[in-house]
Design a protein around this nucleic acid. Structure first.
Lengths: 221, 221
DNA sequence: CAGGAGTGGTGAGTGGCACTATCCATTGTA
DNA sequence: TACAATGGATAGTGCCACTCACCACTCCTG
C-alpha cells in the first residue's frame, strides 16, 4: 500500500506519517521507484503502536523512538527488553531541564537527596527487590520522599512499604500476562503495552477508588 | 520579606515568581508602596507546593492553578476538595488536542468507545465503586482498553479487576493518611500531596518491582 | 498519450507552553 | 545622594509535535 492508504488505515495524517518517517519512528517503506514506496501491515501495526504510546500514554516522540528500538532489538529476551524499555521511559513526563539558573534548591536539598536515596535503598531491601544499580525509578521515589519532607509532611520509607507491596503484586500480575503470546515481536509489543500503556489506566483506577472511598468517609450528600 | 528573599527561600528565580504572580498561581503580596510588596511564610509554602506539582509531578501551570484554587476554596470539605482536585488533574499529561484534521480514528473507534465505556461501567459495578457520573478517570480506563484491543491484545474489563483491587487498597491507604493534620489548609495540602504527588512514585515502585520480578523469571545472568 | 491527482522527500512555518530578558519609574538603603 | 533592588509590563527564547508548501516525479484514467 502507499502512504494515503497507510494514513487511512492507521488514522494518522500523511504529514504526521512523513514526520515519523523522518524521525526514524517508522521504518521506511520498500522503495519501488524514485518517489514511490510500498508499506505493509507491519507499518500499520507500528503506526498504531506509536499513536498509543504518544497519544494514550503521552510519551514524547524521542522516548517512543527509544522504546521502539528496544522492541526491535530485544524481541527474544523479555528481561533485557524490559530493562531497555524501563530505561528509555521518562520518569514523569518528557525530560524536564533540572535547573538553569544558579538559585539554590529549597534549602539543603543536596543532603536531603542523599538521605532520600538511603531511604529508597532501605525500602528496596525491605521488599527484597534486586534491581540494577541506579534505576531512574528509584530516583523518582527518592525525589518524592524529599519533596514530601520539604513540604512538612512527615514521610519516610516505611510509609511507602504498603504501597510497595501493592506495586509488587501489580508487577507480578503484569508478568503473568506475558506468558501466552505469539511470535517474539508480538510478545515484545505486548510487554511494552502491559508495562507502559497500563500506567495511566492504573492511576485512573486509583482515582476512581479514591473518589469512592472519599465519598464513603467524608461525604455528606 | 520581599521578592529576592522569597526567591532565595523557595529556590525559584525572581522572573519565575513574577510569572506565577501574573498567572495567578501565587497570590500577590501585601503592597506597602507603589512598587513594594510584602510576602510571608505562606508564600514560601505555596511556592514550594507549586514547584512540587509542576516539577515533581509534572503538572502544567494551568492544571496547577486549578488544583491550588480547589485547595483554597475547599479547605474544609475533604471530599469536595478531592473531587475538585481529581477533576482538575489532566488524565495523561497536559491537555492534548484530540484531533485537528478530518482523518478517521483507527477504524470503528466510535463503537469501540461505547463498548469500552460499558466495560468500565461493569468494572466499577464489580468493584462496588460509586463515583460521579462521568469521571475523566473512567474515560482513561476505557481508552486504554480500547487501545489494547485495537492493537490486538485480548483485553476486557475482567483483566483489570485484580488491578482495581490493588487500586482500591491504595486508595484506602491514601485516605487513612488524611486523618491527622493540622489546620484545614494544611490538611487540604496534604490531601493534594498524597493523591497527586504520589502518582509518579507509585508508578516508579511498580517499575522497580517489575525489574525485580522480570529478573527472577526471565533473567539469565 | 495527455493531464491531473497522488507520491516521496525536504525545509520552513505554526502554535502552545514555560519560562526568561529587558525595561521602566520608583523606592529602600548605605 | 548614589545605587542596587523592587513591582509591573512587554517582548523574546527554546523546545516540541506537528503542519504546510513545494518539488520533481509517477500513476492512472479517459
Amino acid at each position: 500500500m502507499r502512504i494515503s492508504e497507510l494514513s487511512r488505515r492507521s488514522g494518522v495524517s500523511i504529514p504526521t506519517i512523513k514526520y515519523y518517517l523522518r524521525d526514524g519512528l517508522l521504518p521506511a517503506g520498500r522503495p519501488t521507484a524514485a518517489n514511490q514506496a510500498e508499506y505493509d501491515e507491519d507499518h500499520v501495526r507500528r503506526l498504531r503502536l506509536i499513536r498509543s504510546l504518544i497519544g494514550v500514554r503521552g510519551l514524547s516522540v524521542s522516548a517512543t523512538k527509544d522504546v521502539l528500538a528496544a522492541v526491535d532489538e530485544q524481541q527474544g529476551d523479555v528481561h533485557l527488553l524490559l530493562g531497555l524499555v524501563l530505561g528509555a521511559l521518562p520518569v514523569e513526563r518528557s525530560g524536564r531541564p533540572p535547573r538553569r539558573d544558579g538559585a539554590a534548591e529549597p534549602a539543603g536539598a543536596g543532603a536531603a537527596a542523599g538521605d532520600a536515596a538511603e531511604d529508597v535503598a532501605a525500602l528496596t531491601a525491605e521488599m527484597g527487590w534486586k534491581t540494577s544499580p541506579n534505576p531512574p525509578a528509584a530516583q523518582v521515589v527518592a525525589e518524592t520522599l524529599e519533596t514530601m519532607r520539604a513540604l512538612g509532611v512527615d514521610y519516610d520509607w516505611r510509609s511507602l512499604v504498603p504501597y510497595a507491596e501493592l506495586a509488587d503484586r501489580a508487577a507480578r500480575l503484569d508478568l503473568d500476562q506475558l506468558r501466552d503470546a505469539g511470535d517474539p515481536l508480538q510478545q515484545a509489543e505486548r510487554a511494552v503495552l502491559l508495562t507502559v500503556l497500563l500506567e495511566p489506566a492504573l492511576l485512573a483506577l486509583r482515582r476512581l477508588a479514591q473518589e469512592h472511598h472519599s465519598a464513603l468517609r467524608f461525604g455528606n450528600g
